[in-house]
């Protein structure tokens, strides 16, 4: 896995708007073939990062390399091979879906023909509406047209900024399936930002969680969300007794917190019965054991924090 080709390398990226630090010393790497989940609550700096990746915004400092090339210096070369949707999908509403794609293809410098445009419209299920003006499209249709325009010039890297926002569950599933198809069938590298952990879990192989512009967690999705790594809450009858039982045992290293009768442990799922047995054998009365996935819990907490802020 280590000899993989790096597609995106972000190093020490910073961006502030007036007093607001949007991206704070962010570094990440996306490898070829990755479906890379870029996760964070709203306002975490995801869009700012994506806009910097696509040269919509200039970083204050730090470096971005895509396909091993410096984004500042070889912007045009890089963008030829990048398809993207940034935030909500906006088009020239007064033009047809077909015309929108034609114009965007021509600007990308590719040889656009009817075949290519229709093929892309078919892929996203809009072929029958190719003549309709985009202003008549629903949000979901625009979202799909957004994917069509991102794929039009057959880029290696596809950057999708919250592509499922505003869609109904069916629409979300369609987009997820499409992402999986793009990755598996067309071997695209996909950089997917989302504020939904389960969405990333369903499609991504690697991920990063950022909050307030800073990296919080990074790694393989499987590892990070491994069901064996759990945060387990024990509610007991007698907290003091329990603590004294644990204090000198090997379990103390797994203990995360202890408030009165509530204990939390970071445990492998296999270890839950062992701890349970140990406590019972030492006379602890257990009211409940609630295993929680730690990442999910963590993500939930920063999301709540962000939405309360």
């Amino acid at each position: 896995m280590n000899e993989q080709i790096k597609v995106i390398e972000i190093e020490n990226l910073n961006k502030s708007f007036k007093n607001l630090v949007a991206v704070d010393d962010l570094s990440l790497t996306v490898y070829k073939g990755d479906v890379f989940g870029f996760l964070g609550p709203n306002g975490a700096g995801k869009s700012t990062t994506i806009r910097m990746l696509l040269t919509l915004i200039k970083p204050d400092s730090g470096s971005i390399k895509i396909f091993g090339k410096d984004l500042q210096k070889e912007r045009l070369d890089i963008l030829k091979n990048v398809g993207s949707i940034v935030e909500k999908p906006d088009f020239y509403g007064y033009l047809s879906a077909y015309k929108n794609l034609e114009i965007l293809g021509r600007i990308s410098g590719i040889n656009v023909n009817k075949n290519l445009i229709m093929k892309n419209l078919e892929l996203v299920g809009l072929a029958s509406r190719y003549k309709s003006k985009v202003k008549t499209f629903s949000h979901g249709m625009k979202q799909r047209l957004g994917i069509a325009q991102a794929l039009l010039h057959n880029p290696e890297l596809i950057i999708l900024d919250e592509p499922t926002t505003g869609l109904d569950p069916m629409g979300m599933k369609e987009i997820r399936d499409l992402i999986i198809q793009l990755s598996k069938e067309f071997k695209k590298t996909i950089f997917l930002s989302s504020h939904l952990l389960n969405e990333v879990e369903m499609v991504a192989n690697r991920m990063i969680i950022i909050n307030k512009g800073k990296t919080k967690v990074e790694g393989e999705v499987k590892e990070l969300l491994n069901k064996n790594k759990l945060s387990v809450a024990f509610e007991v009858e007698n907290g003091e007794l329990t603590f004294s039982v644990i204090k000198d045992s090997r379990w103390i290293v797994f203990m995360k917190s202890h408030i009165n009768n509530n204990f939390e442990f970071n445990l492998d799922s296999k270890e839950i019965p062992l701890l349970n047995k140990y406590l019972v054998e030492n006379g602890v009365m257990i009211n409940s054991i609630i295993p929680k996935r730690s990442l999910e819990e963590y993500f939930l907490s920063i999301t709540n924090e962000a939405s309360n802020a």
Partner: peptide, 11 residues
């Protein structure tokens, strides 16, 4: 129209 994003992300 928000179409800056379409234009400027093109090469």
């Amino acid at each position: 129209a928000g179409t800056y994003r379409l234009l400027i992300t093109r090469p």
